[in-house]
Computed example of a mutant assay.
Amino acid sequence: MNLSVPHSSYNVPSSLRNFKEITKFRLSISVLFSSVAGYLLGADNIDFFVLFLLCVGGYAMVGASNVFNQIVERDLDALMDRTKNRPLPAGRICVRSAFVLGVFLTIVGIGVLYAINPITAMFGAISIFMYVSLYTPLKTKTPLSVFVGAFPGAIPFMLGWVAATGSFGIEPGTLFMIQFFWQFPHFWAIGWFLFDDYKKGGFFMLPNGKRDKGTAMQVFLYCIWTVLVSLIPVLGITGKLYLTPYSGVLVGILGIGLLYYAGRLYREKTSKAAKQLMLASVSYITLLQIIYVVDKFIR
Rank of each mutant, 00 (worst) to 15 (best):
S14H: 06
S14M: 12
S15M: 06
R17P: 00
F19K: 02
I22R: 05
T23A: 02
T23Q: 05
K24A: 07
G38T: 04
L41P: 07
V50E: 12
L51Y: 15
F52K: 14
L53K: 15
C55S: 03
S65V: 01
Q70S: 11
M80C: 07
R82V: 10
P87N: 08
L88V: 05
S97I: 01
G102K: 00
A115K: 10
A115I: 12
M122K: 08
A125I: 08
I126F: 13
V132E: 00
T136R: 02
T140S: 15
K141V: 07
L144F: 13
P152R: 05
I155A: 02
P156S: 07
M158C: 02
L159R: 02
F168R: 08
G169L: 10
Q179L: 15
W182E: 05
H186R: 03
F187R: 09
F187W: 10
W192N: 01
F195W: 15
F195S: 14
Y198G: 03
G201Q: 10
T215H: 15
C223F: 03
S230W: 04
V234D: 03
L235S: 10
L235R: 05
G236P: 13
L241G: 11
T244F: 01
V249L: 09
L250Y: 07
G252T: 11
G255L: 11
G257M: 06
L258V: 06
Y261D: 12
L265Q: 09
A273D: 11
A280V: 04
T286I: 14
I291W: 00
Y292R: 08
K296E: 14
